Amino acid sequence: MTYSFAGEIFEVFAYTADGFAEWAARDMERFRPVIVEMLVHGFPVRRDRTLDALRTFWADRLAEGPTLADAESRLRRYIITDLLDDLRDATDPLEKQVISGLLFERTAELMLLLTGKWIGTGKWLPRRLREWDATRAQALAEPLVSGDHAALAEQVHAELDRAGGRVQAGFRR
């Protein structure tokens, strides 16, 4: 539930133990452990041994980082390959912008996941990428921010090569 108090907006996330475990597992499977991060790093309103035990348990899972299965890696590389080809073929300026944003997002996610780092959405994706490797984050972000679609395509291709290369012909989902 979202509240407003003294000009500030804040959200309350309340779960039963089973409900939390279900949502936490779902977030971890999607490589975006939002509620786990809130539990481990958030400000507790009420603290007891149960909370401490939950925090310890989930902090350990968080510290393990994600594991990207080969099939998931190939699917992600396939999607990036397809978007990369779409960007190189695009002539419409709006299409180029949209595809560029998607390419940044998908490529950044792959970069993080292949190194055992959790991903994020919105502002959290570039933050996590910079936290992991500021140099590679800048190399991917700079052509996106400047609108240099050709340079973005080159950088994405370089990251795709690091990840195992393009996936296209013969790929099955």
Rank of each mutant, 00 (worst) to 15 (best):
F104T: 08
R88V: 05
A53M: 12
R166Y: 06
H157V: 03
E109G: 06
G7V: 08
P33N: 08
G116M: 00
I9S: 07
D85R: 14
T2Y: 03
F20I: 05
D161E: 10
A158Q: 02
A141E: 11
H41T: 03
R76Y: 03
P143G: 12
F31W: 10
E95G: 11
A169F: 07
W23E: 07
F43L: 06
R30C: 08
L110Q: 11
L94Y: 13
I9G: 00
V34T: 11
S146Q: 12
H149D: 12
D70G: 01
T135G: 10
D48F: 02
F31M: 15
D18R: 15
D70L: 07
F171K: 07
G147L: 11
S4V: 10
L87S: 09
R32Q: 01
G164H: 02
L62F: 14
Q168A: 07
R55C: 02
R55A: 04
L114M: 13
F13I: 10
F5C: 09
T56H: 15
S146D: 14
G65E: 05
A151S: 12
R30K: 14
T91V: 09
I35L: 07
F43R: 07
T91Q: 10
V167D: 00
L84P: 04
W23Y: 06
L129W: 01
E142N: 15
V40H: 14
R166W: 09
R76W: 02
G65P: 11
A71F: 10
R61S: 12
G116Q: 06
E95V: 12
V36I: 09
E154T: 15
G170T: 05
R61F: 08
A21N: 13
S100L: 08
D92T: 01
H149A: 12
A17V: 05
K117Q: 09
L39E: 04
D48S: 10
F31Y: 11
I119T: 13
R74K: 15
M38W: 01
T115N: 11
R106D: 07
D85T: 15
A163K: 00
V145G: 05
T135Y: 07
G170D: 02
D89N: 13
T67D: 09
T2G: 07
A71T: 14
H157E: 11
Q168Y: 04
D48Q: 04
T135R: 14
P66W: 01
E154Y: 09
G164W: 11
H157Q: 15
W132C: 09
M28Q: 13
R162Y: 04
L51N: 10
S100P: 02
A153G: 04
P143T: 15
A90T: 04
S100F: 03
V36W: 00
E109D: 14
A90R: 00
V98I: 15
